[in-house]
Amino acid sequence: MIEIKNISKSFGKNNILKGIDLSINKGEVVVILGPSGSGKSTFLRCLNFLERADAGEISIDQTKVEFNKAKSKEILALRRKTAMVFQQYDLFHHKSAIENIVEGLIIARKIPKHKAYEIGMDLLDKVGLKEKRDAYPHQLSGGQQQRIGIARALALTPEVILFDEPTSALDPELVGETLDVIKKVAQTGVTMIIVTHEMSFAYEIADRVIFMEDGVVVEEGTPKEVFEQTREERTKQFLARFAYAR
């Protein structure tokens, strides 16, 4: 169970997040929609302290951390309960696929090397890239890199995986394979928060959909409620642009 309370963040005079609350059950898949600049990515990045929020708190598994007061030890502990998949994949360029996956296990989690590589190989298999074990990121397509990115996040068996527009940088042809992997992962009961613009994917995968704009949650509900029985005018406008996608 993850509880996020009143998270706020400003960049200078720009108020990006205006006090957002969210609680997520174990195994739940939450999809966050919204126009660019609405604060979705900042929200995710605040959750694992890649940005430091100005106020609010998060508790994962009874460990409570206040955003503005957290010490580096608490931040590290929190980061070790979360994992992130990035828009630009952000694999380590000087490491091979398998090395990317096991890095966090060996260095952060201090798991013995052979054990880490076993876990790594399992995950490579899971994302369908077993034969790319020793390939470097520059030898992989965007879709393959992102699947390695997902495996890197999964390796840490985090309480929650944060997906920051995982398919936005991909060629349209490669989006499918990546989404398939995410769906497969979701079925295994991993808790996820996903920021995406893939509406049909959101509809299919989400347990709960959140529509955000200007740093506040505009509408929240099951995919059916948000997509088909939309209450808020602003959400309707936003979804109308994607009507063809459904």
Partner: peptide
């Protein structure tokens, strides 16, 4: 982004 990724895996 690579540095963010490194922090995100708990380094």
């Amino acid at each position: 982004g690579q540095i963010d990724a490194a922090y995100s895996i708990g380094l």
